[in-house]
Design a protein around this nucleic acid. Structure first.
Lengths: 154, 154
DNA sequence: GATGAAATCCGAGTCAC
DNA sequence: GTGACTCGGATTTCATC
C-alpha cells in the first residue's frame, strides 16, 4: 500500500512543498532525473497520498482576514456524544482554521481567522458560545504572528 | 499597489486555493473567460501578493509527523527584549508550525508536529524549556485533529 | 519493475487587435 | 478583454537495463 520513499521522492516532496507550481521539467532538472521518470514519481506521490493537496496560500490580510484568534473551549460534559455533537457543529463554521481535541485544561483548541476584533466579538457572542455543550471559552487574541503555518520538515 | 478584486479574481483565488495545480486552461474554462485573460489575472494575483505561495500539503502521517501538540509558553519577563530573543530562537526550531504572541494567560502559543509522544518529550526537555526566558510551558497533546489547516474562507 | 529517449500533443505565454 | 500564433513542457510510448 504505502510504498517507501527514496532520496529522490523526498527531494520532490520538499521541492513541491516549497513551490507547488514547479513544472515537471524544472523538478526533473533539479533532482537530476529524466522528465518522464520525474513525472511518474510525482504522480505516484499523489496517488499514494503523500501529497494530500496543493493549495495556493491566500494572504489573509489581503482578503480581510487579518486577525487571528486562538480559543480554548471547555464543554459541559466530556462524553463521546458531547464531543461528536460539538465537532459536527464546528465543521460548519468557516472561520475555524483549526479545531483540535486536546488533553489538558481545555477540551478543544480553535484557531480562528476574522477581519478584526469587532468581527470576532460578534462571532464569539453569536456563534461560539452558542455551540452545543460549551461551558466556557477562553480567548487569546494573537498580537503578533511570529510563525504561521510553517512548511513541514521531514 | 493593492488593486481591488472583482468576482472573477475571487473565483480564481478560491479555485487555486482548493487546487493549486489547476492549469490556466482549466481555470479559464471554469471562470468562463479566455485563457489569455485568465493568465493575466492570475499573474496579477501573484504579483500583487494575494497569493503568498503555492504549497504541496504533505500528509504528516506519511512522513512520521503524525503527532500534533499545542504548547502554551510563559516567559520570565514581558519585555520587548525577551520577546525578540525568544522569537529569534523559535524561528530555528523546524518542528514549530505556528508561533503566536497572544494576549491572555500565556505569552506564546506554539503548534508543534513530531513523530510521537516520546519524540515530543525529548524535544520538550532538550529544546523547548531550554528556550531563552521561558518560565513555564503547558502542553496540550492533540488527541484528535478535527479540523487542521482549513482553507481560508473569504 | 524501473529508467530515459523520442515522439506527440496540448497548454503557457505573447502578440496584434 | 479576445483570438491567434509559437514555443516549450506535459504525457505517452517504447526500447533497454
Amino acid at each position: 500500500m504505502s510504498s517507501r520513499l527514496d532520496r529522490v521522492d523526498l527531494k520532490i516532496l520538499r521541492l513541491l512543498q516549497n513551490n507547488g507550481r514547479l513544472s515537471n521539467a524544472e523538478l526533473a532538472e533539479t533532482v537530476a532525473i529524466s522528465p518522464a521518470t520525474c513525472h511518474r514519481r510525482t504522480q505516484r506521490l499523489f496517488e499514494d497520498g503523500f501529497i494530500a493537496a496543493v493549495r495556493a496560500m491566500v494572504a489573509p490580510k489581503k482578503v480581510a482576514k487579518g486577525t487571528l484568534v486562538m480559543v480554548g473551549v471547555v464543554l459541559d460534559r466530556s462524553t463521546p456524544e458531547s464531543f461528536a455533537i460539538f465537532e459536527q457543529a464546528i465543521a460548519k463554521l468557516k472561520f475555524v482554521l483549526d479545531c483540535h481535541l486536546v488533553a489538558g485544561d481545555f477540551d478543544y483548541f480553535l484557531k480562528i481567522r476574522v477581519g478584526d476584533m469587532e468581527d470576532f466579538n460578534r462571532i464569539h457572542g453569536e456563534q461560539l458560545i452558542a455551540l452545543p455543550g460549551v461551558r466556557q471559552t477562553r480567548t487569546f487574541f494573537v498580537m503578533k504572528e511570529v510563525v504561521d503555518n510553517a512548511p513541514l520538515e521531514f
